[in-house]
Simulated assay, not measured.
Amino acid sequence: MIFDKNTRIVEFIKRPNRFQGYVVVDGKEELVHVPNTGRCKEILIPGCKALIREENGAHRKTRFSLIGAYKDDTLVNIDSQIPNKVVEEALINKKIKGLENYTKIYREKTFGNSRFDFKLEDSLNNQYYLEVKGVTLEENGFCRFPDAPTERGTKHLLELIEVKNNNIGAGVIFLIQLEGVKSFSPNDDTDPKFANALKKAKSKGVDIFVYECTVSETHIELSKPVELKL
């Protein structure tokens, strides 16, 4: 997907809380919105090159959102609203192996008491529920999720098992928001409950997809599958 708003590279200064950051814009320090609740400590390092997006909302308190940053020479997209949009585009273009036959795509649909990012249907009305997780934590080409404990994430995995138990298709896709990835694993050290839930989900037949993206200062797109190591 191509960003429909102007972007620019600036210097990152600090992040006082989850939703606020300070950068240098035209020589002046400016407050920006950070659309990511994760820690991103290994990415948002004072002095790094950050990618900001111009915003036009009438009721916004900031002119820009901080949507990415360079980690050495690699641009990492950290906008938590991006993964679902990228996955939807990939589903429409049939780029996710195993999900090509699903032609109807619905956002934010419920199963029982659970709400999932996507509900898919094929021409025979077979249903499939898909949850999306954006990944930004990387070290030497090896990526992990989550970068902070996530009870919500664990809950989603257990609920996908329930979907599968009802003979309905279920899967989770980890969208890695950077390029040049070697493999992906759950972050056992940070959240062992999530890691155990992911292993259980796989053993129960829940599909686990892992893809990296091509990322630039003006676009992001799902590109190729990444090896899963459990």
Rank of each mutant, 00 (worst) to 15 (best):
K71N: 15
N167R: 14
K229I: 10
G171F: 01
P46Y: 06
R15Y: 05
Y128M: 08
L198W: 07
E227C: 07
F209L: 08
V172Q: 05
L75C: 12
G112V: 06
E217T: 10
V226Q: 06
V10E: 14
N125A: 15
A58Q: 03
K95T: 06
P146D: 04
A195C: 09
T74F: 01
C48F: 06
A50T: 08
K5R: 12
T74A: 13
L124K: 13
F64Y: 14
I105P: 06
L75S: 05
I173T: 09
A90K: 04
T74S: 15
T110L: 01
T110I: 08
L230R: 03
V215R: 01
D73N: 15
P225E: 10
V23H: 05
Q127F: 06
E131P: 11
F174Y: 14
N166T: 09
T150G: 02
V215S: 08
I9W: 06
E159G: 02
F145D: 04
T110K: 12
F64D: 01
Y70M: 12
S114W: 13
A90D: 10
R107K: 12
P46K: 09
K14R: 14
I82T: 15
V226C: 08
R15I: 02
F116H: 07
R53P: 08
K119D: 02
K200I: 13
E100W: 00
E30P: 02
E88L: 07
N6H: 12
L175W: 10
C40A: 05
E42G: 07
E30H: 07
K14Y: 05
Y128C: 00
L91V: 05
L198T: 08
F111C: 06
D207I: 04
S223D: 14
E138N: 13
R144E: 11
N77A: 15
L178D: 07
L157G: 01
K133A: 09
I52P: 09
K61W: 12
K95D: 10
E100R: 10
F111G: 02
N126E: 11
T136H: 04
K104D: 03
G57A: 11
N140H: 12
L137T: 11
E30F: 06
N125S: 15
L130V: 01
S223E: 14
Q177D: 11
R15N: 04
I52S: 03
K97N: 14
K182M: 11
K5L: 03
V86W: 04
I9T: 14
T37V: 11
F184G: 02
